[in-house]
């Protein structure tokens, strides 16, 4: 789960997340070469048709909150934030759905339709060896458009 530095970019979370030399994050999903299905996170076989012919699919960084919740209890503890924390399904600008924490705002201020962009989060200590993970934070206008 630790980062792999290729000089140009660093791979985290088994390739789920890459960061560029300037730290810019990007999520990597898959696209099925047989049926065109896109999905995140990446899978070994297409979840739509079962094909093993897949290519990596770098995802847009920006999207909107499709739905969310604020977790007060009932979680197993999070390496991203202490409860209460917000988590959401985000519809990225290309239509891909991503399930991720929301950071950088009061969790109770999150709303359906809120514009958000990808960010990275230093993980709290954990048994899985994760040091850096990702979340989405409120972003509007030019800030939101970067890299999308």
């Amino acid at each position: 789960m630790t980062g792999v530095d290729t000089g140009r970019e660093t791979s985290h979370l088994g390739g789920r997340l890459i960061t560029g030399p300037d730290g810019d994050p990007r999520l990597i999903g898959i696209r099925c070469l047989d049926c065109g299905t896109g999905a995140f996170p990446a899978t070994d076989y297409c979840p739509g048709c079962g094909s093993g012919s897949l290519e990596d699919l770098p995802l847009p960084r920006a999207g909107t909150v499709w739905t969310y919740t604020v977790v007060y209890m009932g979680g197993y503890g999070s390496i991203v934030a202490d409860p209460p924390y917000a988590t959401a399904f985000i519809e990225l600008d290309d239509g891909t759905f991503v399930h991720a924490p929301i950071t950088g705002c009061d969790p109770e201020s999150v709303r359906v339709g809120m514009e958000v962009a990808l960010t990275t989060v230093e993980a709290k200590e954990n048994d899985l060896g994760i040091t850096l993970t990702y979340a989405f934070e409120p972003a509007v206008g030019r800030e939101r458009g970067v890299g999308s």
Partner: peptide, 26 residues
């Protein structure tokens, strides 16, 4: 995969229906 979703706080049983409830209210 499941542990990643668990430790990042994404995977809770009530959360799965809370998501549907929030979208439904919207």
């Amino acid at each position: 995969e499941m542990m990643f979703d668990t430790v990042t706080g994404l995977l809770t049983m009530p959360g799965a229906y809370a998501y549907k409830a929030v979208r439904y209210m919207h």
